[in-house]
Design a protein around this nucleic acid. Sequence first.
DNA 1: CGATCGATTGATTTTTGTCAAAGACGGTGG
DNA 2: CCACCGTCTTTGACAAAAATCAATCGATCG
Lengths: 245, 245
Amino acid sequence: MGVTIQGMITDKFLKGRRGMTLEPAERTAIEKAISEIKSLPPRTVMIEAGEALRHSAFIIDGLMCRTITDRDGLRQFVGLHLPGDFVDLHSYALTYLEHDIASVTQTQVAIVPHDRMHALVADTTLARKLWFSTLLDAAMHRAWLFRLGRLDAMGRVAHFLCETNARLRAVGLSDGRRFALDLTQNDFAEICGVTSIHMNRILRQLREEGLCVVRSSQVEILRPDWLAARGQFDSAYLYLDPGAV
Amino acid sequence: MGVTIQGMITDKFLKGRRGMTLEPAERTAIEKAISEIKSLPPRTVMIEAGEALRHSAFIIDGLMCRTITDRDGLRQFVGLHLPGDFVDLHSYALTYLEHDIASVTQTQVAIVPHDRMHALVADTTLARKLWFSTLLDAAMHRAWLFRLGRLDAMGRVAHFLCETNARLRAVGLSDGRRFALDLTQNDFAEICGVTSIHMNRILRQLREEGLCVVRSSQVEILRPDWLAARGQFDSAYLYLDPGAV
DNA sequence: CGATCGATTGATTTTTGTCAAAGACGGTGG
DNA sequence: CCACCGTCTTTGACAAAAATCAATCGATCG
């Protein structure tokens, strides 16, 4: 009661992030700036690199990814986005993106036209929170760089699963051990920068050793501490509320 | 004449970036916000992960890096910063960083206290340019992710050299083929996520095949086109002025 | 039911890391 | 001036990690 459908849309935005949670008025302001709600089928490119952009999208439900495609058409995931993520807020200041944004699963996004964004950022407090949200993405990029640059294949998977668990938990979509994650082994491979064949072997190994089961769009972490150690995972870069970690 | 020393400080900030160049008044505003100029010896940590921050630093001269250190003390570079880069502008909204920032060479930085930053971002046009500058870092992070995730060791080096060449060129520090870059082979290794031994072999190979000479703090690119192709380099993510590319 | 997509497995090759040891070079102190 | 040192570079031999090639297998879908 008292919670309108409208009120649910930005529910998860910056949820659980250290000192950056939105005030009710700020959420209302953002929700008023929404021009439409769009539904995307799975595996659909929403934004292509280079395209001129006049609006940003906020994920209400579903999984989206940011990818860069190489000369042979092979993709590297440079980000994975969950409900509550303002997936291409950065296009507001960049005007075009140098990567693609696509849905992974069936997705619902809220569209905010850039010309309505001007009014939002006139409020310097809200502007700073929006800025913060894009800096959070950058912090995740850095964690991903560490993952790819310093960890072996199993470490990368471990790190990624810890991160995803923590992020989903922050928005109430993981209980800390088990969560839905509708990615194929090939997606995991494109995230971790290994071949899907190798990814298959790593996931089997994790399963056989009773550490973690990744299977049919469901992840269950059996030994969270072990996984965090194996992936050298430290959640500081997610800027979560001390209580929420 | 007419160009004061003061006027030189922010000279290179956002220089050559598509529609984001600073107006004289904006540069003056930033320069007035500077509280001090600091000199850093080579290889000095300026900011440690987790430290509470009350100011940001702008690089006037020198090379700095952002690094994440693993459990064994091995570092992964997650960014390299040149003169004209507002190296930790993001600390303004983040309040602490999850990575270290250190000098590579002898460096001069201009310090801008966060409480003076408030006045700068009150100007929404300037705020947007500052925001853009942090998004540029994020775009580079993504290019680095592509590099680590999809390229082999030689491709990574090629990509990195193309990027650095383009960035230095934008601020007038490369002629497009030859530039100073005071990095050790170990730095290159920490940037590209390979061992320094392997990096040594790659650099030798580039040299022997007459493609590129990386030696004693000087880089000379003999075949820019080949290097760009080998590293699948596309400068779109640097958001350079069409004329400057 | 064939077709397609994703998962799985084995055999083999390629790339990169590890270990061990010199060589080069500049700077310092005797 | 020169021997010594530390840092950076270079090289070889070998081991480990991951990629590649080639098939199956299983489930789902029209």
